[in-house]
Design a protein around this nucleic acid. Sequence first.
DNA 1: TTGTTAGCGTGTCATATGACACATTTTTTT
DNA 2: AAAAAAATGTGTCATATGACACGCTAACAA
Lengths: 189, 189
Amino acid sequence: MLYDYFKGFGELPDNEMDYLLSHCTLNEIRKGDVLITPHHHVDSIYFLEKGYLHYYTYTDLGERVTLKVVSPNVCWTVMESFMNQIPTENECIALTDVRFCEFKRKDYLAIKEKSKSLSNFISRIVEQVLSLKVIEANNKSKMTVEERYLHLLQTNPEMIREVPVSIIASLIGTSRETLHRIRRRLTAA
Amino acid sequence: MLYDYFKGFGELPDNEMDYLLSHCTLNEIRKGDVLITPHHHVDSIYFLEKGYLHYYTYTDLGERVTLKVVSPNVCWTVMESFMNQIPTENECIALTDVRFCEFKRKDYLAIKEKSKSLSNFISRIVEQVLSLKVIEANNKSKMTVEERYLHLLQTNPEMIREVPVSIIASLIGTSRETLHRIRRRLTAA
DNA sequence: TTGTTAGCGTGTCATATGACACATTTTTTT
DNA sequence: AAAAAAATGTGTCATATGACACGCTAACAA
């Protein structure tokens, strides 16, 4: 699965691909388990094979805000913590049972040093992830709450089904009641 | 100025730094001049020395939305267009007279191929920019409009002075009237 | 099985916001 | 210097949203 994901980023000799995959360890956690706690130095890149993660923070007033719901088949980490080796303020827990691959920072750096082709392959992935992040952020700016919901419904209907409404609401930047009104309007039409 | 900016990202041998800087061309444009138009393939990375750029898009209803105000002393480009060589939908114009350095995509790729240290240096910058982008996006999620304004006021007071209120309002995700009310409240207190 | 908790659906109500309109000021153009 | 255009300040008003409250159901633990 991870292999297919990597292949989407371009050619890579078999032996280098093997090298890459050999540094990944497979893990499983249960629904409700904590993956990242505040003040934690995030030291891994995660690739989800199954399940959903809830990444969130708190406002000054103590309200919980969803920053991301991590879906299967994507690479994810707390970028600023991983890259700059600083602690994160945020938390991440499993919304369902989750199976994932993990790359340690140490191995990530070793892979980048191994060869020029591997180094460029990795940076292509980072650039790709960055592009997606930027597009996502821009979409959020230009879309209304309702448009964001419809967009999610189109691009990731499974997530809508599997993740609690209150968390979806927080993700698209509204209250659970307002999301409810939106859904009522949509089913009525 | 660009030299100082680069030095902030770590050590690099003098000759490699010279090589890097030799690929940069200096340009100037006037207030109101257009830098990027829709359907344009963005082919450069820009480093602002002086002035402000306005990067924006339009909603389905034709309303203009500010995606970014580019300030001096930062590197910037339309990431998804530059990285994937696809046309952008968005526009960018100069809000003031602007002086900037420009790296062409061709040179960017050449620099990455030149040596491992240059390649890693570049990817460190990309990772850094990515981190900032993510932090910015997360802050936007967790802050109210007023908090975003106060945050801007603290981190970039010059921008608040130089850029029209209506554009600041759009940047922080509100109308110019609401930003006005916020400012009135703040000066009253 | 029963008790407890978490999530969902829905109503009321106060309020912050966007839309509109218009006066005033500043900037740009002729 | 005068005229035109752009940006800003401010008031009114309808409305979408968040906060709160409460009942219901489903999931989970004892």
